[in-house]
Every structure is written in structure tokens, then in C-alpha cells.
Design a protein around this nucleic acid. Sequence first.
DNA 1: GATGAATGAGCTTTCATTCAT
DNA 2: CATGAATGAAAGCTCATTCAT
Lengths: 190, 190, 190, 190
Amino acid sequence: MTGAQERPLRADAARNRAKVLDAATEVFTTRGIGVPTEEIARAAGVGVGTLFRHFPTKEALLEAVMVRRLETIAERTAELAAGAEPAEAFYGCFRLIVEQSAGKNEFARALAAAGVDVQSSLQAPSAVIRTRLTGLLDRAQRAGAVRPDLTVPELIALLVGTGATLEQLGPDPAARERVLDVLFTGLRPR
Amino acid sequence: MTGAQERPLRADAARNRAKVLDAATEVFTTRGIGVPTEEIARAAGVGVGTLFRHFPTKEALLEAVMVRRLETIAERTAELAAGAEPAEAFYGCFRLIVEQSAGKNEFARALAAAGVDVQSSLQAPSAVIRTRLTGLLDRAQRAGAVRPDLTVPELIALLVGTGATLEQLGPDPAARERVLDVLFTGLRPR
Amino acid sequence: MTGAQERPLRADAARNRAKVLDAATEVFTTRGIGVPTEEIARAAGVGVGTLFRHFPTKEALLEAVMVRRLETIAERTAELAAGAEPAEAFYGCFRLIVEQSAGKNEFARALAAAGVDVQSSLQAPSAVIRTRLTGLLDRAQRAGAVRPDLTVPELIALLVGTGATLEQLGPDPAARERVLDVLFTGLRPR
Amino acid sequence: MTGAQERPLRADAARNRAKVLDAATEVFTTRGIGVPTEEIARAAGVGVGTLFRHFPTKEALLEAVMVRRLETIAERTAELAAGAEPAEAFYGCFRLIVEQSAGKNEFARALAAAGVDVQSSLQAPSAVIRTRLTGLLDRAQRAGAVRPDLTVPELIALLVGTGATLEQLGPDPAARERVLDVLFTGLRPR
DNA sequence: GATGAATGAGCTTTCATTCAT
DNA sequence: CATGAATGAAAGCTCATTCAT
């Protein structure tokens, strides 16, 4: 139920869909949202028509990229959450999400600005993540690894913001570590 | 240091420039960067021609909006920094900046994407801010109010990210306070 | 003379050709010429590929639709012309054609605009009709049922125009009758 | 009240609007509705942008062309209707309209197909014409020059259809005269 | 100086037609 | 042979920027 298609989708069609999605993710992330659809098609090695057959709108493409990202995050958090003690699971997932989420904000904003019903299409995967985060936070708080007054919306906002922080900061590992340490220290019960 | 020099600029021209700048700030912030230039002109109550006379490019307008924001921030931080003990000055400025900076990221990104030499045009005001931040951080660290390993670039990244966090979080004051408390706790020496 | 010769055409292929032709007639008539080819294929219950195998061009399909219409008209006029006295035959055929020809003009125009050699492809069936009309007119004129100065091209133009009149008029039977009465009165010798 | 603009419209703007309208009338009539908007702009000697500034949609342009045609017809019928005895006025206007209306049907159909609210935008001028036609028909019927059972909708349908007849017929004056004579004879009381 | 009409490159999207499956 | 995914030329429309009024 994570991504069931209507019909199985022909082999080559699926391949092209994936190529487009990959190219879009790459291009949107590196060069921003303003890039012409045609460029993305070219990067994917398909014609514009093909792109539009799979994603009837540029918006729809953006949406699909986000959905896939969220799904990826959901999967990885599931693995992490499975076999680990509460604190490790929580902070591990935090790390995972903020590393993955570079550029995510821009997408969300663009979608929102375009008036997409972000709720409906992203709700499924983001609900999964939200549920997972709720569980992680709860367990960690009960284990005394996270301050008890923090709520899920605040956690999500912090994830988004920390993503932005890291994006702004650049690649220096020591600096990134220091910034995460600030966050993690602040998240622990005093 | 308020911005305009070159030539004194006629009274009505200056008034128009200000009207455009105000309108642009308002419109860009509320409706995003994609809004047509003409809309901004209309919001300012002038013709597009006038707008382009003052800001030869849409980019230039965006830049000007950012510059003014930074200048505003610089001024206010100056006031705060002046008569206050180190800890209060530092945390007060942090608050001030993150509250002010809603939407700032989008601007910065847009400018960067457009290939503007963000450094050169924003350098003056951002250098002022950077200097001020350096001073604030330094004083606060020496007073034992901020962990000593934090550097200025990390502080700036945290300011940007915390702005994003608050933007994501919405207006609930309790939640905002909690989030800031996480940050401030994390920033203190253990 | 039903259309298909060249090669016998397999049974299912012939069935598909007919399905496409029926669907095209229906769709073109009700929704205009602008409908995407794919829609017609869907209405016919076949893939686009099949459609294009039978009609190498959208134009060709339009043409085929018109040809079949003309053929239908030709057949019916034949029946009417066979066993009836001149006046009845003439006015009966006039009625028949103008009732049948709703929307036909649009096709003809579309074909002409597309630069199709309307003459060559439609010549066979329209020659049949023209011959029949010539006979009908001639007999009716000799019987004193139609004014003697009217020529075949004028008759055809009047048929086309009366079709348009009825199309414009809508379904009210009394009004349609009145309009036809105007025409028929005008067609009789003074 | 026949065509009042919001603001007087600058001299050059009015000139361009007229040029576009002329070109559109010409091009639509001779080459059909399918012609690219850009072609019309070129024919008018302006850029596409200018065209779209005046007519925000291709549909709107079609509409405007029709409106102007109807207005022209309305004016001319007014002149004719003014100083003439009933029969002459009626048959004169009939002639005038069917000569003018070449290609009009195609426009009307295109508009209808596009789902334009034909009523609202064309109502004003077409109401004028309808009123005029009502008056002409009424006077002619009272003068015994037209069969008394004919109604206005039927008259309009006949005008449309006769336009189509003439268009189909081509330019031969004798043939056109003969066709009109059929109509006019049919329209007289028997 | 101010205005807003004109410009046209560029963007998203459609659709007749081809061709791998 | 049938299918429908792929193609890409072309269409309609937008918008930053220029320039006559």
C-alpha cells in the first residue's frame, strides 16, 4: 500500500518513469525548481512527451519527487527504529532525516505556492513518517533520552530547520558535528 | 549608510523608490518570488517603467530588499549589543534575527541561483552583521554564556536554520518558545 | 462498392476498421473535429496503433467518414428515386439529404482547409450522388415540379445551405417544416 | 453603449488593437480558425505579446472578430431599414446579411465548441440585430411582402443557411441571383 | 521622470504519428 | 496484427525588459 500502481506498468514504461524521476530529483536539487521541463527530459534521456505522459504537470513531477524522498526516509527510519534502543534510534533517525532533507524545503514551498493540495498526495508517506516519529519520540522520552515537553510538530519543525542549517553550513564534517551537537544537547532533558 | 548616495535623488523619485521597496518586501514575503514584476509595481502604485528605472533588474530589486532587511537587522542588533550584558545581548540578538528572517532563505537561494554575486552586493551590510555577530559571540563565550567551540559560520547557519524552524512551526507562542529553548540550551556550555 | 477491397482483410481487422469508423462518425459529429485521435480510438475500443493502421492519417479518417456518409446517402436516394413519380422523388431526396447532412459542412471545410484533394477521394461517391441528383432534377423539371432554370451546382449549394439552416434551427418540427416549405415553394415554377 | 471601453485607450494601443482585429478577420476568414496566433500577430505587424495584451485568449480574439462583424451588420441594416418601404428594406437586409456572413458560421461554431458563454459577449450586438430583424420582419409581413407564419428564429436560421449556400456556390453572379430568387420567392406569401 | 504598451524569448502542455513490445 | 508508450514539433500563453508617449 506504499505505492501500488493501477496497472503493473510495462517494463520500458517503468524504466522511463524511474529515469525521469531520478533526473528530476537530481536536477531540481542541484539547479533549483526553475529549470525547464525540457531540460529534465533531456537529462533523463527521454522526450518531453514521455515526461508529461508520466507526470501530467510539472507540479505533479515535483510532487512525485517529494513523495519518493519521503518514502525513502520512511523506509530507512523503519530499519533504524527496528533494532536499536530508544535513544540511539531517535538520534539516529534525526541524523538520517536532516542529512537527506537537503533541498526538501524548497520543494515543499514550491508546491504550497502552486496551491497543490499537498495534504492529499503527500499525506500517505508523510503520515507514515509522522507515525514513526511519534513512536520514536515517545519511546525516547520514556527512556529519558529526550526532554519530555517536546511535541511532534516541534520535532518536525526542528528537523526541517536543521536540514536548512546543514545546507547553509556546507560540507565541513567538524562544523556539521558541532551543530548537531548543539541540537542534541538541547534536546536532552536538562 | 542608509543606502542611497550617488546623486541626491529628487524628492518624489526617492518616495517612489521607497514605495517600490516596501511593496516588494511585502509581496515577495507573502506570495513568493514568482510574482510578476508588474504586480509589485501595481502594489506600489507606480508603473513598471518606474520600477525598472530604480531597479534595473528583478534580481536587483530582490537584492535591495535583502540589503534593507540586513541593514534593519544590523541596526537593531547594534542597539541591543550596545547596552546589555553579554549573555542577554547574544540571546536577544539571536531571537531578533530568527524572528526577522522569515522567508529570507528563499531570497538568498533565488539570488544565488540567478548567479548574482551575492557576496559583492550584500557584502557591505552582511559584513556589518558578521562583525557584530563575531563580537557578540566572542563576548558571550568569554562570559561563559555560550559554548566555547562554536564558530561564527556555525552560528550563522544556526540562525538561518532556526528561522526555517520557526517558519515551519507557525505562530503558536508556546511551541516557538520551546523550540528556542532547545536551541538556547544547546548553545550553553555544558 | 462498400469501400474495402485491395486485399480481403481478415475478419477481425475488418471488424476493427468498422468500429473505428463508427466511433469516428459519432465523435466527430457530436464533439467536433478537434478531438484527439486517442479519444476516438478509446471510443472504438482499440489502441491508437490500430486506428493508424487502418487510416494512415487523421485526415484519411475524416475522409473515410465522409465517404461512408455520402455512400449512405447515395444508397437511400437510389431507393427513393427508383419507385416514385418525379416530384415526390425530388422533394423526398431533398428532405433526406438535408436531414442527413448535419455537420457535414464542417467536415468538408476541414478537409478543404487541410488541402486534401477532396475531389479525388470523394469523387467516386459524390459523382454517384451528383449523377443521381442530375437525374432527379432533370425528371422533376420535365414534369414541371421544379423551376426549369435551376442547375445542379445550385441545387447542391441549396442542399448544403438548407442543412445548415436546419442545424441552426434546432429540433422543433413545426419550424423545420416551415423552413422546408419556404425552400420547396421557392423551388417550384411560378 | 455599443462598444464603450473602460478607458479611452492610448492612440497607439487603439491603432494596434485595430490592426490585430483586421488581421484576424482576414486570416480567420481566408485560412480558417486553425492558424497559429503567432501568424495573426505577424500579419498584423505586432508581437504575440501585444496580441495577447488586447485579447487575453485566442477565443477572445475570435469573439471580438464576431462582435465587430455583427456590429457592422447592425449598422448597415439600420441605414437600410431607415429610409425604405417595408419589402425593399426586408429583402435588402436579407441580401446584405447573407453576403456579409461568409465564414461567420465557422466562428460561431468554434466559439460554441470552446464553451464560450456566447450569450454574454455576443448578446449585446446580436440583440440589436435580432431587434432590427424583428422589426423588419414584422413590417414586411404587415405589408404583405413576407408570408405571415414565418418567425424570427426561422428567419435567422434561413439567413445562416443562405450564407452557407452562397459560400458553397462560389462567385458566379447569375447562380447567386438564382439561389436568392428561390429563397425570396419562397418567402413571399403564396 | 513617469507611464504602460510593445516585445519576443521561453515555458508548459498537447497531439498526430511512429515503433518497440 | 494489436497495443499503447515514446516522440517532438508546434501551440497557447507569460513575463522581464524596453521605449514611445
